[in-house]
Simulated assay, not measured.
Amino acid sequence: METAVKNLLKQERVAYILQRLEELYPETPVPLDHKDPYTLLVAVLLSAQCTDERVNQVTPSLWALADNPADMARVAVEDIQRVIRPCGLSPQKAKAISKLSQILVNEYHGEVPENMAALETLPGVGHKTASVVMSQAFGHPAFPVDTHIHRLAQRWGLTSGKNVAQTEKDLKRLFPRDKWNKLHLQIIFYGREYCSARGCDGTVCEICTTCYPARKHPKKTKKA
């Protein structure tokens, strides 16, 4: 008599995902080129609706204009916009970069604040961007959720996926705090390589099929 194929229980999925991602991605270099908290902040802001590759192509020209808040605050918005145009949404992003640079100079002595609430008040800086800066620039535990992570967390049965805020809460509850910073990058790397929006539907990649061997139909995911 054949034994029915069973999907893994949630805690089994969590343990397997941690182990497999650590095997695949023992090193997690930050995908956005930067040299300090300010250049990371600007790079993350530019990455909204844009690939990291494109951002990394554009930022050297931007840093040639200015690579610190004091110098950037003196650059005309039009000049910033001209350089960052390939990243998309350049009018809004250029204004945000100019304004946040002025605020950093006037209110924070030209330094990026090591504070989540303060970061979230800066123009163009939402919760995800602030989380990335807190985790990758300052080393504070955070779990930034982008579209890759939101999609994979649903495919792997780790969240109901109502929105990115809910996904972030669920992942923080499931995974150890000391793993968050590395794990968020590992999930992004895996999503790009094996479990992309078109490349997997919840029934193709190794983690999806290991967690859900009994899954017969594509997993519909809710957009962020």
Rank of each mutant, 00 (worst) to 15 (best):
C50P: 00
L40V: 07
K35S: 15
A4Y: 02
E12S: 06
W63L: 07
W63K: 05
L46T: 01
K6D: 06
D71E: 15
A66V: 02
E53V: 11
R74M: 14
E78Y: 08
L65Y: 08
V5K: 13
Q81V: 01
R13L: 04
R13N: 03
T28H: 00
L18K: 09
R82Q: 13
D36W: 11
Y25C: 00
V30P: 00
I80W: 04
A70N: 08
Q11V: 05
K35W: 13
I80M: 12
N7T: 10
V42P: 08
E12D: 15
Q11M: 09
V5C: 03
Q49R: 04
A4Q: 10
V55L: 10
L9S: 10
L41T: 03
H34L: 10
R74V: 09
L46P: 05
D52Y: 01
Q19A: 14
L65M: 12
E78G: 03
D33R: 12
A76S: 15
E53P: 02
Y16T: 00
V44Y: 05
E23K: 09
E12A: 08
T59D: 06
A73M: 15
E78I: 02
D79H: 02
L21Q: 01
L18A: 07
A76P: 13
E27C: 03
Q81A: 08
T59Q: 08
E53F: 07
L41A: 08
V30S: 03
A4N: 03
K35L: 11
Y16I: 01
L24T: 01
Q49C: 05
T3G: 08
L21W: 02
V42S: 12
W63R: 11
L62N: 07
L65P: 12
A43T: 05
Y38T: 10
T3N: 11
C50H: 05
L24V: 00
V30G: 01
V44N: 09
A70Y: 08
V14T: 12
V30Q: 14
Q81E: 15
L45I: 08
A43K: 03
A70D: 14
S47V: 04
A66S: 10
K35P: 01
Y25P: 00
L18M: 12
V42E: 08
L9D: 13
V55Q: 05
N56I: 09
A48V: 07
P37C: 14
V77I: 14
D79V: 03
D36Q: 09
A66W: 02
E22R: 03
D79I: 05
A15C: 09
N7Y: 06
Y25A: 03
L46K: 01
A64N: 12
N56K: 06
V5M: 06
V44I: 14
T28L: 01
L9C: 05
V14G: 10
S47T: 10
P60Q: 12
P37S: 14
S47G: 10
A66Y: 01
A66C: 08
